[in-house]
Structure formats: C-alpha cells, structure tokens
C-alpha cells in the first residue's frame, strides 16, 4: 500500500493479509518520497500492527532514494525489506547498509529480505541472487516490469510469464523459502483471480501479492486447505498418534504408507486451517 496514505497504513492490520508491504517505490510519486518515508517510519513506530508481518518496499539500487529509505526505516524495525529489481549487487549492497544501520541503532530484529524478481537477468541469475544473503525469506515475481524488460506484451492469459513462474516457484522451493506470485491486475475479476491463483498454487507458489485489499480473501481461499484436506490431515495425525503409542514408525492409511513427510504435511495443513479459523 502507498506509504504516503495515512488512512491505509492505519488499517493495514485489519485487512487479514499475512504480510503487508508499505511502499516507498512505484506507488509514491517523486515529490512524495520524503513524506512517505516519514509516514511509514512513524506508522511502524506508533501503530500496534498486530497479527501481520509488516515489510517496506524501498526504492531500487539505481535510484537516488534507497539509502535514505533504509536510514529512515531500519531504526523503526520492520519485519522485512522488499528489494525491487533484485540482483546480486542490489542484495549485497543493501544488506551491508541494513547491517550497518541495525548495529548503529542496536535494533532487536534481524531484518528479513523479500526480493522482487522482475528482470530477465534477475530470472536467469536467480540461484546466485538467493545465495547472496542468508536473510532472504521470499522471492516475489514482478511480471509487469519483467514483461517490459523482455519487450513483450502482458496478457490476462499469462502464457508469456509461465516460464518465469515455474522458475521462481521451483527456485524458492529448492531453497525452502516462500514464492509469491505476481499480482492479478484486474481487481474486479474475482473469478479470474481465483483461477489464476489456483494455477499459481498448483505449480508451487506459496502465496500471492494482492494489488488491492479486496483480493486478499480470494487468495486466502485458494491457498487455504480445503475441508477434505483438513479432515484427511486430522485423521492422519490421529492415526500417527495411535501408531506412536504402539511404537510403530510407519503405518498405512487408505492403502498408502504414511511416513514422516506425510505427517509433517498434515501438520502444516492443520496449522494453516487453525490460523484461518477453519478448525479450532
């Protein structure tokens, strides 16, 4: 959400998002950069913002603003910094500055990084980028800027970004970090959002950027476990408990062997369901 909009910042923790990005970059015009920086810093310091991860998107390395952004924001201890146009260089340079500021201000939090992959070079260098810092928590696909970098037309069908999507989802999985899909830009097309998000989930994305808060519910519905999945996970956990009492390491459910990875997956499903109030 735009960092220079006080009303939006105040209601950030009412929107049921897992994570919020206060933006200092593209949503803020050049003449509002200072105002946004100050407002976001104050919001982070003053507002309780409970039950939601709060991150700040700073301006990119090739802009004159990123340093002042970090100087202003890091002392207010956001959960994470979102780096646009991520590259090995931008991650390393910004991490260095972040560490300096954390030490100078003796902050308690170790700031996480969320990287937006939005250039052709960013895509093919993905592995090096992810390995460039141990603070990276998620990679986010930015398909609008990517299409522009590629010189291709962005369409609703999104065939043109399929390769990028598979790549981002797979790389994130390989490094056990989150992969967040590019926003669905037609905010009034709820069915389109749902179908497109189902696809994202099916290829391994663990979440999605919402360009409007009204999209959050649909995205959650897709990523939340279904009632069937929850029930099955609950049965598996129950059976696992019984098996453990009997001293069995593995057991069978519906004719299939249940071992530790399956039990872990069931635990994840029940945890997620609990978080969304689908089970108590």
């Amino acid at each position: 959400m735009p960092g220079n909009n006080p009303g939006m910042l105040t209601s950030a923790d009412c929107l049921e998002a897992d994570s919020i990005i206060f933006d200092l970059e593209d949503a803020v015009s050049l003449k509002e950069k200072d105002a946004a920086r100050i407002l976001v810093r104050e919001a982070l310091s003053f507002l309780p913002l409970q039950g939601v991860e709060v991150t700040v998107r700073v301006n990119p390395l090739d802009s004159p603003y990123w340093k002042e952004d970090l100087e202003s924001i890091i002392p207010a201890e956001p959960d994470g910094i979102v780096i646009p146009k991520a590259s090995v260089e931008s991650v390393q340079t910004m991490v260095k500055e972040i560490k300096r500021l954390e030490e100078a201000h003796q902050t308690e939090k170790k700031t996480k990084l969320l990287l937006i992959i939005e250039s052709a070079m960013g895509l093919i260098d993905l592995r090096n980028i992810i390995e460039s810092s141990d603070r990276i928590d998620a990679i986010l696909l930015g398909a609008e800027d990517l299409s522009s970098d590629m010189g291709i037309k962005r369409t609703k069908e999104s065939k043109e970004i399929e390769y990028a999507r598979y790549l981002v989802a797979t790389a994130a999985r390989a490094y056990r970090i989150d992969a967040l899909d590019t926003p669905f830009t037609d905010i009034d097309d709820v069915e389109g959002l749902e179908a497109d998000t189902r696809f994202a989930k099916s290829i391994g994305f663990t979440g999605r950027l919402a360009i409007n808060p009204r999209q959050i519910v649909t995205i959650h519905e897709v990523f939340s476990p279904t009632q069937e999945e929850i029930e099955e996970a609950q049965i598996i956990l129950h059976e696992a408990e019984e098996a453990e009492k009997k001293g069995l390491g593995v057991f069978s459910y519906k004719g299939k062997m249940v071992d530790l990875p399956v039990i872990k997956r069931a635990e994840q499903i029940v945890d997620s369901a609990r978080k969304w109030g689908l089970v108590r």
Binding site: S11, C14, L15, N212, R214
Partner: peptide, 11 residues
Amino acid sequence: TKDPVGLKIAR
C-alpha cells in the same frame, strides 16, 4: 461498499 475495511466488517 468497496472499502476493504467495510467488507471485512461485513464478512
């Protein structure tokens, strides 16, 4: 309402 806060109240 299209206000996301209003919609949360409604849900």
